[in-house]
């Protein structure tokens, strides 16, 4: 696989790209695929999704750091919404706020001096903050109806469950990646 191939084939403009850019592009592409696939899953409630794209963001955060994770997350929301056709719709605003708050929390985790977290803890915080951001955007911008607030505990519970699931997946993914890297050395 040659990572420079797509950009040369699709665009006549030659852009100087770094190894980082390519990494971000590939990981974002993966996240976008998951994002779009998830959008196809019927959801019982708007805003409730397993959040498997979270797996990519958290794995990238752990492997390559916060900056890369932030880029991947932002690209996922922007490009993902273009693909689904939700760009600049309320759904997009919710996704963007959720992603932004979740990335902000990842930033706080990076700065946190206390005991380190495994992907389980990181995914949990990321998932909860994503839902919290998304919900506050929905409540403050679109439906400031007090009835909305009664949904919050349920939504946060679902976010915790999905956070745990994505945490397990992220842990296994990273462990097997590292195992393979270790074997190949």
């Amino acid at each position: 696989m040659n990572p420079t191939e797509p950009s040369e084939a699709s665009s006549p403009i030659i852009v100087m790209t770094t190894r980082d850019d390519h990494r971000i592009a590939w990981l974002a592409a993966l996240a976008i695929v998951i994002h779009v696939a998830e959008a196809a899953i019927p959801s019982p409630m708007p805003g409730v999704k397993p959040g498997l794209a979270n797996v990519i963001t958290v794995a990238v955060f752990i492997e390559f750091g916060w900056r890369t994770a932030a880029w991947v997350s932002l690209l996922r929301v922007l490009v993902g919404s273009l693909v689904i056709g939700s760009f600049l719709t309320p759904g997009f605003a919710l996704s963007l706020t959720g992603a932004a708050v979740s990335v902000a929390v990842l930033g706080l985790i990076r700065l946190w001096p206390g005991p380190s977290l495994s992907p389980l803890g990181v995914c949990m915080l990321s998932s909860l903050s994503h839902m919290a951001g998304q919900f506050s955007a929905a409540y403050l911008l679109f439906i400031p109806h007090p009835g909305m607030l009664t949904l919050l505990p349920v939504l946060m519970t679902l976010a915790a469950v999905f956070g745990l699931v994505s945490g397990v997946i992220t842990s296994l993914l990273l462990a097997s990646l590292h195992g393979r890297v270790a074997n190949s050395e």
């Binding site: 932004a100 708050v101 990335v103 902000a104 930033g107 951001g133 919900f135 506050s136 403050l140």
Partner: peptide, 14 residues
């Protein structure tokens, strides 16, 4: 980052 923190503050005050 300030903006993010603002969102968190808004949320917590809500």
């Amino acid at each position: 980052r300030k903006a993010f923190i603002l969102v968190l503050v808004l949320l917590s005050s809500a």
